[in-house]
Design a protein around this nucleic acid. Sequence first.
DNA 1: CAAAAAATATGATAAAAATCATATTTAGGA
DNA 2: TCCTAAATATGATTTTTATCATATTTTTTG
Lengths: 143, 143
Amino acid sequence: MLSNSSKYAIKAVLFLALHSDEEKRVMVKDIAVPINVPQAYLAKLLQPLVKEELVSSVRGPKGGFYLNEENLNHSVIDIIHVIDGEQKLNSCMLSLEKCNEEKPCPLHNILVASRKDILNNLENRTIKELAFSVEEGSAFLPL
Amino acid sequence: MLSNSSKYAIKAVLFLALHSDEEKRVMVKDIAVPINVPQAYLAKLLQPLVKEELVSSVRGPKGGFYLNEENLNHSVIDIIHVIDGEQKLNSCMLSLEKCNEEKPCPLHNILVASRKDILNNLENRTIKELAFSVEEGSAFLPL
DNA sequence: CAAAAAATATGATAAAAATCATATTTAGGA
DNA sequence: TCCTAAATATGATTTTTATCATATTTTTTG
């Protein structure tokens, strides 16, 4: 479904949503260990997220990564788009060029509805909401 | 979502459902070209499908691949299981070991319903039904 | 029974994804 | 201002996936 990279990135962002803020920055290694992702790899993944302003960072001592209010209002799909590219989730299940609403492939019809649901959720739920579901106890860690 | 291998395999099986039967066998190259998959690669993919009896074959001249009545009654998920393995679609979206109904991860709740729908469809619709949707004109090729 | 046509089996190569390692830049504090 | 701690940038390696190539077995037909 998603690449490992996207999964790692999502986990990292969720972790930051729960454990960081403007004043409390977290170093890669302190993200990588608890979410169970190789540190060097995660460091690399975080770069495009910072560049696209889904995650904030400051260098140097006392530096690290964190989410500010704007970052918190992004959605999971934003992360996926940055890491895996825009096409990954949009294309037809069989990756058929010519499959679309008018000329659906045999799998299209039986799956569109659910696929749309998933897409909607991934693009409408904010990181903040997801983090909140953990805080209020309706969702759980560890990542 | 799915590996290319699974997509190729599904396309091949759908093609056979529409263009083969016990008496009319189709050679790999005559499947590979129309469904737009490298021939040698497809040949390799077909082997496990034959072994698991999702596809039928006979060797030698006038030989080839085809689907019999039993083959037609399998589902798309059977193909995925043979090619990608059982775990591929079952695991949590973030591949969290410990994510389950009782302790769902933050993405779990918002996606379970649609995921279940997709899974149900993939495992309940038979190849025959999917092929029929093309014959009756509610779904379309080319693959 | 031999030759040819097909699948089947096996292995080699190429490309992509994941992982690891190292050098560079930036910011804070002594 | 210099040292250190952090992110950032870049490149190398490993692993997985996809692809290509070739040898072997089976079946039909002349």
